[in-house]
């Protein structure tokens, strides 16, 4: 009854979708972590007002579904004059989403760094930038790296929703294929497995990057 060979003519479609998903993931992972790092630094070291603003952003995003955020950005914002293509809306929505979650995660790492580290770095004659990157952020990131990895994978999986605003990602390809050959089960099983492979691949890449970035530990 199951017939996977019917999917073969659509290989290009699946691969194209996979590539789009991968592209979006790479781009928004970088952007999202940048937003998260900035917001976490504000949340930890900023003024009272800016801390509150970041907290509000984080809570608002963490307590609403991604699909609603996406619809709000894609359908809602044009009505106040901000027209966005599906691609732009996707990148904004994914970045905002990952930004909020990674803020919470990175902040947890930062709050674990003892105050004495700042003082010690000052005594050793490191300037502000050196202290921030080498003494504060690197060890903080090392602590929370596994949690951050998982969150990036969760956001990648969440990107399946983007097919709803007609971004031609992997899920979009699956929907298109099953509407053409009526092999819904096969199409979705294959797509689910592709997502699983992508998730495993991401974990692998993150581990590789982590080994390089945090290599100083092993050198000791």
């Amino acid at each position: 009854m199951l017939n996977f060979s019917d999917l073969l003519p659509y290989t290009d479609m699946f691969l194209g979708g996979l590539l789009t998903t991968l592209e979006l993931t790479v781009l928004t992972t970088v952007l999202g972590i940048l937003v998260g790092t900035t917001c976490a630094a504000i949340r930890q070291y900023g003024s009272v007002g800016s801390k509150r603003a970041v907290a509000a952003y984080v809570e608002l995003i963490r307590n609403t579904p991604f699909i609603v955020q996406l619809f709000f950005i894609f359908f809602g914002l044009p009505s106040i004059g901000l027209m966005l293509t599906p691609w732009q809306a996707s990148i904004i929505a994914l970045t905002i989403n990952l930004g909020a979650y990674s803020t919470e995660i990175i902040r947890a790492g930062l709050s674990n760094i003892p105050k004495g580290q700042w003082e010690a770095a000052k005594v050793l004659g490191l300037n502000f930038r050196q202290t921030l990157i080498r003494v504060i952020f690197t060890p903080a990131f090392e602590k929370i790296y596994p949690a951050l990895t998982s969150q990036c994978i969760i956001v990648m999986l969440g990107s399946a929703v983007l097919s709803q605003i007609s971004v031609e990602d992997l899920t979009y390809a699956a929907n298109l294929v099953q509407s053409r050959n009526f092999r819904a089960f096969e199409s979705y099983v294959v797509t689910a497995l592709m997502y699983l492979g992508l998730a495993m691949f991401m974990r692998y890449v993150f581990t590789l990057i982590g080994k390089r970035v945090f290599a100083f530990r092993e050198a000791q």
Binding site: M1, L2, I153, L157, G158, S159, A160, V161, S163, T171, A174, N175, Q178, F182, R183, A184, F185, Y188, V189, T191, A192, L193, Y195, L196, A199, M200
Partner: peptide
């Protein structure tokens, strides 16, 4: 755990809804 944490919830929903009815 690996299977259901590593695939999108949306895909699981499609499989349950469209997929299951396709196989009867």
């Amino acid at each position: 755990v690996e299977l259901f944490q590593g695939t999108p919830l949306l895909m699981q929903m499609f499989l349950c809804f469209f997929g299951l009815s396709m196989v009867g």
